[in-house]
Design a protein around this nucleic acid. Structure first.
Lengths: 336, 336
DNA sequence: TTGTAGGCGTTATCAC
DNA sequence: GTGATAACGCCTACAA
């Protein structure tokens, strides 16, 4: 690999001059700068990031924590879109990204220490168990951190607007005449809590009565469980006219069950998903779903993080909400 | 950040000793090693990978090229599963991974140079335009490279068994009595070529006649186009009894079109997908599809690459085929 | 068994 | 405007 020294020797100048010239320092004359750059290209010079990091104490690497709880690997639309967006936005700013895990080879290495080892300038926590001590350790460390869909006290976070999501859904199905609305929510997380609270609040405002057995729990992204819950709902004496699912994938389990009962969507029963994944728009009927703006969330996460890295002093840490949009689709019938 | 020197001073030994002690060198007495490790933990020592890389000329970072041609970001099941698998397998061996793009900030930087800048020990090309000069440059560089689903002369590659995939599909639908088999294949790539060749070969062997207008092209992962091609097929005087799609997502477009024509699957027409994505198993009827073993492909890619890095001399570069498996599903009717 | 010292490639601070 | 030179933190011969 050709290095600064090679260019310096070829040109009969010093290494320091080459270093400055390559970075267009105004200390160096235009003519010399020009010769340096030309020679660098000629020799195919590429800087050594390790040496540079060592000296400058900046790696231009951002760590990403992505712990897959939802049994979907990177294949969960909401998160994979976000990751793409994070990657692209980082790249735009000259940063690379690397996954931060809590193992390295045989050895256990906490998230913080992994990030420290790679000298990450900052970390984005996309998914993780936010109650895990190691995650908390990372958040409270000296490394700038942005979390997604979870707020730590006095830290930056980007939030998909879960309150508004459910509110919009309820308002929409209400407008379509539904009063018997069942809600299958996901497993217990901060996000789920918000959605449930928001569900009840919206119902209260609209004076919708919610029987206890209209509220069910099923794992996110797990069609089978949602299917079982759907069956329970369909067997109720007072059947709901509309079912809200934890997410679009989970809905697929409900779909099967609904068809088993010989019911048609939306003629016999209305359904609503969450996420607005690619699939939801491909399906017929198009699924009514709240589309989270995961691209924007990723972008915001990057920009907030870089801001924090660049001006650690003046940076104000606060949660940012990113709104989604209701995709009305064709699965909610007007039953007026 | 605490460094070797800090430990050395705290213990009254030399930096060299600490360095060796931490790596359990047999040069160092057990007692001193013990004290060193204890002190290191006490002080929370974490090595600086940049300094280490600089010295050892090994980064333990693998670059991944993932250029999204299929308009799906990381959201394409086949690839996202593979990426998860690559990440996990690398982590198992003490490697991290970073995406290698051909831009960095404002500036254009070729893939090779990006990988060189980060001193990647090797690169896995997951998706890319393999005809692009920059990709070829990367493959022909000094950096160990493994490609997926594309073979460069005398380089390592991992291949999903596209030949066998189509052969198995054809044999299966033949067994079910189908003779009028239409094939909507993807856009022109090496993979597509293989599949087409394999399709014709299997048909020939079974003496199935393939009318020209039974063969159509539609972009991968693009339901709308597959839908249009499906319509054309359904309007033929001599309608096929079975349609093979480029992939499971593309099939979704076909599904809509088939339903528009008032046809039912599989009663009125049989269909086959490709990939065996999560969704294909959730759908009812379960989609007949060839399930590519993307987890295994990712794993193989990592292991082949690491082998090549560790023993560059003795390593034999050759393509590795990874078999998939036919998911029979419920969308191919027995029409005997 | 432990210590010393040079150097990996870069940047930055001084002199000149 | 340019050139020495000293770090950055680590590893590794080689010396003690």
């Amino acid at each position: 690999m050709v290095k600064l020294k090679d260019i310096a020797e070829a040109l009969g100048v010093s290494v320091g001059t080459v270093s400055k010239g390559l970075r267009h320092s105004h200390e160096i004359s235009e003519e010399v700068t020009d010769r340096i750059i030309r020679k660098a290209n000629e020799l195919g010079y590429i800087a050594n990031s390790s040496a540079r990091n060592l000296k400058t104490n900046r790696s231009y690497v951002i760590g990403v924590v992505y712990v897959d709880k939802s049994r979907a690997g990177l294949g969960h639309d909401y998160f994979s879109t976000m990751l793409s967006s994070i990657r692209d936005e980082l790249s735009l700013h000259g940063y690379d990204f690397t996954f931060v895990s809590n193992t390295i080879g045989e050895n256990k290495l906490s998230y913080v220490n992994h990030a420290r080892y790679r000298r990450c300038d900052g970390v984005i926590i996309v998914t993780a168990d936010f109650k895990e001590p190691e995650i908390i350790e990372l958040v409270e460390s000296e490394i700038p951190v942005v979390t997604i869909d979870h707020v730590f006290n006095n830290r930056s976070a980007i939030l998909s607007d879960n309150d508004e999501g459910l509110e919009q859904i309820i308002n929409y199905v209400y407008k379509k005449g539904h009063r018997k609305i069942a809600f299958i929510h996901g497993e217990d997380t901060a996000v789920t809590e918000q959605r449930i609270a928001s569900f009840y609040k919206a119902c209260e405002t609209l004076q919708i009565e919610v029987p206890k057995d209209y509220i069910k729990e099923a794992l996110y992204h797990f069609p089978k469980q949602a299917g079982l819950r759907t069956r329970e709902l369909l067997q109720l004496k007072e059947r709901p006219t509309c079912i809200i699912y934890p997410d679009d994938y989970a809905f697929m389990g409900g779909l099967t069950e609904i068809e088993k009962h010989g019911l048609k969507i939306p003629e016999d029963i209305s359904v609503v998903g969450y996420d607005g994944i690619f699939l939801s728009r491909i399906l017929r009927p198009i699924l009514c779903s709240y589309v989270q703006n995961s691209t924007e969330i990723g972008k915001q996460a990057v920009n907030r993080l870089l801001e924090q890295i660049d001006k650690p002093k003046s940076f104000i840490r606060k949660p940012v909400r990113v709104k989604g949009v209701l995709q009305e689709g064709q699965t909610v019938k007007d039953i007026h």
